[in-house]
Amino acid sequence: MADGNGRPAMAGQDMGREVLLEVRGLKKYFPINAGILFQREVGAIKAVDGLDFFIYKGETLGLVGESGCGKSTTGRTILQLYRPTAGSVIFEGVELTTLKGSELRHMRRRMQMIFQDPYASLNPRMTVGRIIGEPLEVHKVARGKELIKRVQELLELVGLNSYFINRYPHEFSGGQRQRIGVARALALNPSFIVADEPISALDVSIQAQVVNLLQDLQKDLGLTYLFIAHDLSMVRHICDRVAVMYLGKIVELAESEELYTNPLQPYTQALLSAVPVPDPVVEKKRQRIILKGDVPSPANPPKGCNFCTRCPVAMDICFETEPPFVEVSPGHWAACHRLI
């Protein structure tokens, strides 16, 4: 099977399911500048360093990793909010990385983002109506009365009262603000949404509400999510498949249940060992793998495997060559020399 560009499908894709998004060799480096009088480039932060994965239509793919490992950068680079340093992003059969200007703007209607910080993600000087209506205004989809009507619909859709249309963000609670952010993302009827830690900044009591809202919307509108989170416990029930990221690379990717029951990569194992288990018998036996040392700087990642400096089972080869990202069993990828 080939996608819209006539390229061969990525290995391991389920031929029966439609792929919405495909990412190949994606890299995003941020230049490091220095100099008092005139700045020059002295290095690069390798925030995202070669990702290969795809997302099926209608599924939720979780992207999990410690803070600073490049999850947000991945999300933003996919949406072309950052232009990638290398690699390709094929969305609905269209190569996004080469799109410019109005073509890219047009594609933005199909893919949106929900942000982590419900306080920073809404312009404090705009009313809720203008915030949610902005996508419609920018794309000239609706104006005047029609726009107001659509905004009211969106408010109701995310469980807010349409009376709120003239209020300002500071008059809402964190959970309500996050709903406003969701309404804005939905305004243009996108098919794909990057949810960048949408519940991390919320009270635990509110988190379930927002997750449920996102799941309801997925069912009703047929949405596809890239769900970013910084710990594994959160994504288990939300995601169909989960990718684990470390220092700019995906180290393991599998179906949720498979990943939780059969983690292959030492980093995933360490992460999972920190997740409490509801079953008291298993919980008692649970042994935490404590990783030593700090995450290396993305400006200067180690030679060989990125995880080698902290890996409890590292071998000589791990310090020399980078492990390939291979499909160990159907639908289960991992990057580790021990698996080859």
């Binding site: 909010l81 993600s121 312009n123 920018v138 804005r184």
Partner: peptide
């Protein structure tokens, strides 16, 4: 660098709109 500016960009707003409105 605030997320609302990023959000406007994600929605497709141009530089002028971001500067003047946001």
């Amino acid at each position: 660098e605030k997320e609302f500016v990023e959000a406007a960009r994600a929605v497709g707003a141009g530089d002028l709109r971001i500067i003047f409105i946001h």
